[in-house]
Protein backbone atom coordinates (compact mmCIF):
# COMPACT_ATOMS: atom_id res chain seq x y z
CA UNK A 1 0.00 0.00 0.00
CA UNK A 2 0.95 3.63 -0.18
CA UNK A 3 3.23 4.47 2.68
CA UNK A 4 4.26 8.02 3.28
CA UNK A 5 7.99 8.38 3.36
CA UNK A 6 9.14 8.79 6.93
CA UNK A 7 12.78 9.73 7.13
CA UNK A 8 14.39 8.66 10.45
CA UNK A 9 15.92 11.37 12.61
CA UNK A 10 19.33 9.75 12.28
CA UNK A 11 19.25 10.62 8.57
CA UNK A 12 17.71 14.07 9.06
CA UNK A 13 20.29 15.02 11.69
CA UNK A 14 23.21 13.66 9.70
CA UNK A 15 25.69 16.06 8.15
CA UNK A 16 23.91 15.91 4.80
CA UNK A 17 20.53 16.07 6.53
CA UNK A 18 21.37 19.42 8.10
CA UNK A 19 22.32 21.06 4.80
CA UNK A 20 19.61 23.43 3.60
CA UNK A 21 17.15 21.50 1.38
CA UNK A 22 17.20 24.37 -1.11
CA UNK A 23 20.96 23.88 -1.55
CA UNK A 24 20.52 20.12 -2.00
CA UNK A 25 17.76 20.72 -4.53
CA UNK A 26 19.93 23.28 -6.32
CA UNK A 27 22.80 20.81 -6.57
CA UNK A 28 20.44 18.12 -7.89
CA UNK A 29 19.20 20.50 -10.60
CA UNK A 30 22.73 21.63 -11.46
CA UNK A 31 23.75 17.99 -11.89
CA UNK A 32 20.66 17.34 -14.01
CA UNK A 33 21.55 20.28 -16.27
CA UNK A 34 25.20 19.22 -16.43
CA UNK A 35 24.35 15.63 -17.28
CA UNK A 36 22.10 16.78 -20.11
CA UNK A 37 25.22 18.16 -21.81
CA UNK A 38 26.91 14.82 -22.44
CA UNK A 39 25.96 11.31 -23.52
CA UNK A 40 29.29 9.97 -22.27
CA UNK A 41 28.70 7.37 -19.55
CA UNK A 42 31.59 8.41 -17.29
CA UNK A 43 30.22 11.66 -15.77
CA UNK A 44 26.87 10.15 -14.73
CA UNK A 45 28.52 7.03 -13.34
CA UNK A 46 30.86 9.23 -11.31
CA UNK A 47 28.03 11.42 -9.99
CA UNK A 48 25.82 8.42 -9.19
CA UNK A 49 28.65 6.91 -7.14
CA UNK A 50 29.21 10.22 -5.36
CA UNK A 51 25.48 10.36 -4.62
CA UNK A 52 25.44 6.88 -3.11
CA UNK A 53 28.62 7.42 -1.08
CA UNK A 54 27.40 10.80 0.19
CA UNK A 55 24.06 9.33 1.26
CA UNK A 56 25.62 6.35 3.03
CA UNK A 57 28.44 8.23 4.79
CA UNK A 58 27.43 11.90 5.23
CA UNK A 59 23.72 11.11 5.16
CA UNK A 60 23.74 8.04 7.46
CA UNK A 61 21.35 6.25 5.08
CA UNK A 62 21.54 2.44 5.47
CA UNK A 63 22.62 0.78 2.23
CA UNK A 64 19.56 -1.50 2.12
CA UNK A 65 17.24 1.50 2.50
CA UNK A 66 19.02 3.34 -0.27
CA UNK A 67 18.86 0.30 -2.54
CA UNK A 68 15.11 -0.03 -2.03
CA UNK A 69 14.64 3.61 -3.00
CA UNK A 70 16.79 3.28 -6.10
CA UNK A 71 15.41 -0.05 -7.37
CA UNK A 72 12.74 1.35 -9.74
CA UNK A 73 15.47 3.24 -11.59
CA UNK A 74 16.82 0.17 -13.31
CA UNK A 75 13.55 -0.56 -15.14
CA UNK A 76 13.06 2.99 -16.41
CA UNK A 77 16.69 3.40 -17.39
CA UNK A 78 16.69 0.03 -19.16
CA UNK A 79 13.53 0.87 -21.11
CA UNK A 80 14.81 4.20 -22.38
CA UNK A 81 18.26 2.81 -23.17
CA UNK A 82 16.83 -0.03 -25.28
CA UNK A 83 14.49 2.40 -27.05
CA UNK A 84 17.36 4.72 -27.83
CA UNK A 85 19.62 1.90 -29.06
CA UNK A 86 16.95 0.45 -31.37
CA UNK A 87 15.77 3.72 -32.89
CA UNK A 88 19.06 5.59 -32.92
CA UNK A 89 19.86 7.80 -35.90
CA UNK A 90 23.27 6.10 -35.98
CA UNK A 91 21.68 2.81 -37.03
CA UNK A 92 20.84 4.24 -40.46
CA UNK A 93 24.46 5.17 -41.06
CA UNK A 94 25.92 2.49 -43.38
CA UNK A 95 29.49 3.34 -42.34
CA UNK A 96 28.93 2.71 -38.64
CA UNK A 97 30.14 -0.52 -37.07
CA UNK A 98 27.33 -2.95 -36.33
CA UNK A 99 27.41 -4.20 -32.76
CA UNK A 100 24.22 -6.26 -32.69
CA UNK A 101 22.34 -7.72 -35.67
CA UNK A 102 19.12 -9.63 -34.98
CA UNK A 103 17.20 -10.26 -38.20
CA UNK A 104 16.12 -6.84 -39.49
CA UNK A 105 17.34 -5.17 -36.31
CA UNK A 106 20.70 -3.45 -36.67
CA UNK A 107 22.27 -1.70 -33.71
CA UNK A 108 25.50 0.15 -34.33
CA UNK A 109 28.30 0.73 -31.85
CA UNK A 110 27.70 4.51 -31.51
CA UNK A 111 24.01 3.84 -30.89
CA UNK A 112 24.91 1.36 -28.19
CA UNK A 113 27.39 3.74 -26.54
CA UNK A 114 24.81 6.52 -26.44
CA UNK A 115 22.27 4.12 -24.94
CA UNK A 116 24.72 3.18 -22.19
CA UNK A 117 25.30 6.88 -21.52
CA UNK A 118 21.54 7.49 -21.27
CA UNK A 119 21.16 4.55 -18.91
CA UNK A 120 23.84 6.02 -16.66
CA UNK A 121 22.26 9.49 -16.93
CA UNK A 122 18.87 8.27 -15.71
CA UNK A 123 20.47 6.27 -12.90
CA UNK A 124 22.50 9.33 -11.83
CA UNK A 125 19.47 11.67 -11.86
CA UNK A 126 17.46 9.13 -9.88
CA UNK A 127 20.22 8.40 -7.39
CA UNK A 128 20.57 12.09 -6.63
CA UNK A 129 16.85 12.25 -5.88
CA UNK A 130 17.07 9.27 -3.53
CA UNK A 131 19.96 10.95 -1.70
CA UNK A 132 17.83 14.10 -1.41
CA UNK A 133 14.61 12.47 -0.24
CA UNK A 134 16.40 10.18 2.25
CA UNK A 135 18.01 13.16 4.01
CA UNK A 136 15.16 15.70 3.85
CA UNK A 137 11.68 15.69 5.30
CA UNK A 138 8.73 17.50 3.79
CA UNK A 139 8.43 20.11 6.56
CA UNK A 140 12.09 21.09 6.39
CA UNK A 141 11.87 21.26 2.61
CA UNK A 142 8.92 23.68 2.69
CA UNK A 143 10.45 25.71 5.55
CA UNK A 144 13.58 26.07 3.49
CA UNK A 145 11.70 26.90 0.28
CA UNK A 146 9.78 29.65 2.07
CA UNK A 147 12.64 31.07 4.13
CA UNK A 148 15.54 30.59 1.74
CA UNK A 149 14.00 30.61 -1.70
CA UNK A 150 11.20 33.15 -1.42
CA UNK A 151 8.34 30.73 -2.09
CA UNK A 152 4.96 32.15 -1.03
CA UNK A 153 4.15 30.81 2.47
CA UNK A 154 0.48 30.43 1.58
CA UNK A 155 1.26 28.17 -1.36
CA UNK A 156 4.18 26.41 0.31
CA UNK A 157 2.39 25.57 3.54
CA UNK A 158 -0.90 25.00 1.69
CA UNK A 159 0.83 22.29 -0.34
CA UNK A 160 2.45 20.88 2.80
CA UNK A 161 -0.94 20.69 4.54
CA UNK A 162 -2.35 18.83 1.53
CA UNK A 163 0.67 16.52 1.52
CA UNK A 164 0.01 15.53 5.13
CA UNK A 165 -3.27 13.95 4.05
CA UNK A 166 -1.62 11.13 2.08
CA UNK A 167 -2.07 8.49 4.83
CA UNK A 168 -5.74 9.43 5.05
CA UNK A 169 -6.12 9.19 1.28
CA UNK A 170 -4.51 5.75 1.44
CA UNK A 171 -7.09 4.72 4.07
CA UNK A 172 -9.86 6.12 1.87
CA UNK A 173 -8.60 4.07 -1.04
CA UNK A 174 -8.73 0.96 1.15
CA UNK A 175 -12.30 1.78 2.17
CA UNK A 176 -13.37 2.35 -1.43
CA UNK A 177 -11.88 -0.99 -2.48
CA UNK A 178 -13.55 -2.75 0.46
CA UNK A 179 -16.90 -1.26 -0.55
CA UNK A 180 -16.50 -2.64 -4.05
CA UNK A 181 -15.71 -6.05 -2.61
CA UNK A 182 -18.72 -6.00 -0.30
CA UNK A 183 -20.97 -5.17 -3.25
CA UNK A 184 -19.75 -8.39 -4.84
CA UNK A 185 -17.48 -6.81 -7.43
CA UNK A 186 -14.56 -8.92 -8.35
CA UNK A 187 -12.06 -6.26 -9.43
CA UNK A 188 -11.30 -3.96 -6.55
CA UNK A 189 -8.78 -2.00 -8.61
CA UNK A 190 -10.82 0.02 -11.07
CA UNK A 191 -10.38 3.45 -12.70
CA UNK A 192 -13.61 4.56 -11.02
CA UNK A 193 -11.75 4.49 -7.72
CA UNK A 194 -10.08 7.71 -8.85
CA UNK A 195 -13.37 9.61 -8.69
CA UNK A 196 -14.15 8.34 -5.21
CA UNK A 197 -10.64 9.17 -4.11
CA UNK A 198 -10.90 12.73 -5.47
CA UNK A 199 -14.28 13.25 -3.76
CA UNK A 200 -12.74 12.20 -0.45
CA UNK A 201 -9.62 14.29 -1.13
CA UNK A 202 -11.63 17.43 -1.85
CA UNK A 203 -13.80 16.94 1.25
CA UNK A 204 -10.62 16.49 3.25
CA UNK A 205 -9.17 19.62 1.63
CA UNK A 206 -12.30 21.61 2.49
CA UNK A 207 -12.02 20.66 6.14
CA UNK A 208 -8.34 21.52 6.08
CA UNK A 209 -8.92 24.91 4.44
CA UNK A 210 -11.65 25.75 6.95
CA UNK A 211 -9.37 24.83 9.86
CA UNK A 212 -6.54 26.88 8.37
CA UNK A 213 -8.77 29.91 7.81
CA UNK A 214 -10.05 29.58 11.36
CA UNK A 215 -6.43 30.08 12.45
CA UNK A 216 -6.08 33.10 10.14
CA UNK A 217 -3.72 31.28 7.78
CA UNK A 218 -1.82 33.66 5.55
CA UNK A 219 -3.09 36.79 7.28
CA UNK A 220 -0.69 39.04 9.07
CA UNK A 221 2.85 38.38 10.17
CA UNK A 222 3.99 34.74 10.28
CA UNK A 223 5.91 33.37 13.24
CA UNK A 224 8.40 30.52 12.92
CA UNK A 225 8.84 27.41 14.98
CA UNK A 226 12.39 26.82 13.86
CA UNK A 227 14.98 29.49 13.30
CA UNK A 228 16.43 28.97 9.85
CA UNK A 229 19.61 30.68 8.80
CA UNK A 230 22.24 30.06 6.20
CA UNK A 231 25.06 28.03 7.71
CA UNK A 232 28.67 27.50 6.74
CA UNK A 233 27.85 23.92 5.76
CA UNK A 234 25.40 25.20 3.14
CA UNK A 235 28.21 27.07 1.41
CA UNK A 236 30.52 24.06 1.69
CA UNK A 237 27.84 21.78 0.23
CA UNK A 238 27.14 24.16 -2.66
CA UNK A 239 30.82 24.49 -3.56
CA UNK A 240 31.43 20.75 -3.23
CA UNK A 241 28.38 19.94 -5.35
CA UNK A 242 29.45 22.26 -8.17
CA UNK A 243 33.11 21.16 -7.98
CA UNK A 244 32.05 17.51 -8.27
CA UNK A 245 29.92 18.36 -11.30
CA UNK A 246 32.86 20.10 -12.98
CA UNK A 247 35.11 17.15 -12.15
CA UNK A 248 32.52 14.75 -13.58
CA UNK A 249 32.18 16.71 -16.82
CA UNK A 250 35.97 16.82 -17.18
CA UNK A 251 35.95 13.01 -17.22
CA UNK A 252 34.07 13.19 -20.53
CA UNK A 253 36.75 15.23 -22.27
Amino acid sequence: MIVQLVVPDSQLDSRLGRVSPVIKLGIAFAWLAGLALTTDARPPVFLALIGVVAAVTLGAVPVSRFARGAAPLAIAAGGIAVFSAVFSTHNADPAAVVAVALGPLRITTPALLTAVGLFARIVAIGTTAVTFSQTTDSTRLVDSLVRHAGVSPRFGYGALAAYQSIPRLADDLGALRASRRIRGMRWTWHPRLLLGLLVRAIRQGDALALAMDARAFGLGERTWYRDLRWQGRDLVAAIAGLALLVAALMLAC
Binding site: F155, A159, A162, Y163, L197, A201, D206, L208, A209, F217
Partner: peptide, 14 residues
Protein backbone atom coordinates in the same frame (compact mmCIF):
# COMPACT_ATOMS: atom_id res chain seq x y z
CA UNK B 1 -8.70 31.77 -1.29
CA UNK B 2 -7.21 29.31 1.18
CA UNK B 3 -9.70 26.80 -0.14
CA UNK B 4 -8.45 27.30 -3.72
CA UNK B 5 -4.86 26.73 -2.62
CA UNK B 6 -5.59 23.64 -0.56
CA UNK B 7 -7.92 22.04 -3.11
CA UNK B 8 -5.46 22.67 -5.97
CA UNK B 9 -2.68 21.23 -3.82
CA UNK B 10 -4.73 18.22 -2.76
CA UNK B 11 -5.63 17.44 -6.38
CA UNK B 12 -1.88 17.58 -6.98
CA UNK B 13 -1.22 15.30 -4.01
CA UNK B 14 -3.86 12.75 -5.04
Amino acid sequence: RTRDIVITAIIGVA
